[in-house]
Amino acid sequence: MSRSLRHGALAATAVVFSIAALSACSAGNDAQTLQVRPDNAATAVDSIKIQNLNIITQPEPEAEGPAVIAATLFNDGPKPETVEKVTLPGTDTTVELKPAKGKGPLEVPAGGRLVIGGKNNASAVIENGRQAGTNGNVQNVAFTFSETGDIELGAAIVPATSFFKDFGPSALPSAEPTPSPSDSASGTTGEPSDSGSPSGTTTDPSASDEAATADDAAATH
Rank of each mutant, 00 (worst) to 15 (best):
S2Y: 04
R3N: 14
S4P: 04
R6E: 14
R6M: 07
A9D: 06
A9I: 12
T13N: 08
V16Q: 02
F17I: 15
A24R: 05
C25R: 11
C25K: 12
S26W: 11
D30N: 10
Q32N: 06
L34S: 03
V36Q: 12
R37A: 10
A41C: 05
A42H: 05
T43Q: 03
A44C: 05
I48F: 03
Q51H: 03
I55R: 00
I56Q: 05
T57Q: 07
Q58G: 09
E60A: 15
E60N: 12
E64T: 13
E64H: 07
G65S: 06
A67G: 08
V68F: 04
V68M: 09
A71F: 05
T72I: 14
T72A: 10
F74Y: 15
F74V: 11
F74M: 11
K79C: 07
E81R: 02
V83M: 05
E84S: 10
E84Q: 14
T87W: 02
L88G: 00
P89E: 06
P89C: 03
G90T: 01
T91H: 00
T91L: 01
T93C: 05
V95H: 01
E96Q: 13
L97G: 04
K98T: 15
P99E: 10
K101E: 15
K101S: 12
G102I: 10
G102N: 07
K103R: 12
K103F: 14
G104A: 09
L106C: 08
L106D: 04
L106Y: 03
A110G: 03
R113C: 03
V115P: 00
V115R: 09
I116N: 01
G117M: 02
K119I: 13
A124P: 06
E127V: 13
E127H: 11
R130V: 13
Q131F: 08
Q131L: 14
A132V: 11
G136C: 03
V141R: 01
A142I: 06
A142F: 00
F143M: 05
T144L: 11
F145A: 05
S146Q: 00
T148W: 00
T148Q: 01
D150P: 01
D150H: 00
I151R: 01
A155N: 03
A155G: 02
V158M: 11
P159I: 06
A160H: 01
S162V: 06
F163S: 07
K165W: 01
K165Q: 09
D166E: 14
G168P: 01
P173M: 06
P173E: 06
S174E: 15
S174C: 04
P177E: 10
P177C: 10
T178S: 13
P181G: 06
S182K: 14
S184R: 15
S186Y: 07
G187V: 11
T189D: 14
T189C: 04
T189A: 12
E191T: 14
E191D: 14
P192N: 08
P192W: 04
P192K: 03
D194G: 10
S199M: 13
T201V: 15
T201S: 13
T202N: 09
T202Q: 14
D204P: 02
S206I: 15
E210W: 12
E210G: 08
A212D: 13
T213L: 15
T213A: 15
T213S: 12
T213Q: 13
D216N: 08
A217R: 09
A217L: 15
A219R: 07
H221N: 13
